[in-house]
Design a protein around this nucleic acid. Structure first.
Lengths: 189, 189
DNA sequence: CAGGTTTCGTATCGATCACTATGGATAAAT
DNA sequence: ATTTATCCATAGTGATCGATACGAAACCTG
């Protein structure tokens, strides 16, 4: 998982995986069928071990503002854990791919879309409960938040510290606080 | 350039480049020395033809708020041009790479850092001129803006339309407008 | 202890990678 | 017109990719 996370799907060779896992090639293929299946297993493990913060943040019984605060600050921490590759596997795994690896790229894209959809769902709940500022559209703000998280992932990959990511997250969150202060003001120019 | 932009450095094979350019392998190597040099030429061309908006936005004789507005809205348009790969080559070219392509990945990372530094420079000018809200730090806000642009690049790659990217950009810009409204309020929680 | 079976690591598979040597065709020069 | 020289596409280089065939060792059964 760390290798895929660090180098991406295609750039991670079986030789690297073999050495990291201490297995011989037939053992790998017996256990994981092929490279693509192995990557999907790593993706599942990534879900379970690295990004629980997102589901927790979005499902916690807290106001919407607190939920997205936990989401972004959780991302700041998760994307810069010591000893782990920076950023998010969904982004680093296969942002660009050869035609042969299109299926993997599409799968990661679907994961990113699902993350955005999960945010949108939480925002819609907030809208229904009345604690989403009027000036923010559910879809638009979800895309903004997902975009900020993706951006944080790249900043993390470029070496941003957890403090820098937290500052970035808090700057991004200011939009929420601000739109709440304004009454019905236009969010567009 | 389009191939590198779409598939990234490593996933773009010489066979693809050969077919796209209509050249034979020796012609390619006569003209560009090797794949790495060819990529650098494409990178230079990308600078010249695709992201002029950024330099224009940052060097225009306009208030800081207008400069970053042009920057983000220019990115929204540049990252979703019809007939072009979505997003930014700096991000898509080699976010993750094999050890052999580390030099290319580092070069693109340097480009991203340079973009952030250029934003920071413009913000510092704004601070000096007094039209950067007090609540925003030059470094922190530059990292936020660069992060948002990187995030927009990924959203564009995932198929976001120019309108969606513009909305995202305007949401991000709200931070600037808001921090300007507040007097000396803390930007952190 | 012998036989049959299963497991497992080495050595290698064809395909493709970035890259280049060579032979043939064309142009230039005498 | 004939020789010389220059270009340039085809064909192939070693290396590495993901994936596997085969021989040896181990193990359970009789």
């Amino acid at each position: 998982m760390h290798l895929f996370w660090e180098h991406g799907y295609e750039a991670t060779s079986l030789a690297m995986l073999r050495e990291a896992m201490g297995l011989t090639p037939p053992q790998i293929y017996n256990a994981f069928t092929d490279k693509e299946t192995l990557f999907r297993k790593a993706l599942t493990r990534y879900h379970q071990t690295e990004i629980g913060f997102a589901l927790e943040a979005l499902s916690a019984p807290v106001p919407t503002g607190e939920a997205i605060r936990r989401l972004l600050l959780g991302a700041a921490e998760a994307y810069s854990r010591p000893g782990k590759p920076g950023g998010c596997l969904f982004v680093s795994g296969a942002l660009a791919a050869s035609p042969q690896a299109q299926a993997i790229a599409d799968e990661l894209k679907a994961n990113r879309k699902a993350s955005e959809a999960a945010i949108a769902e939480r925002l819609a709940k907030g809208r229904a409960m009345g604690d989403l500022p009027e000036g923010l559209s559910v879809e638009g703000f979800a895309k903004y938040l997902a975009g900020v998280m993706n951006g944080m992932s790249i900043q993390a990959r470029d070496g941003a510290s957890v403090e820098e990511l937290r500052t970035l997250a808090q700057t991004a969150l200011a939009v929420f606080a601000i739109e709440g202060q304004k009454q019905g003001a236009s969010s567009k120019e």
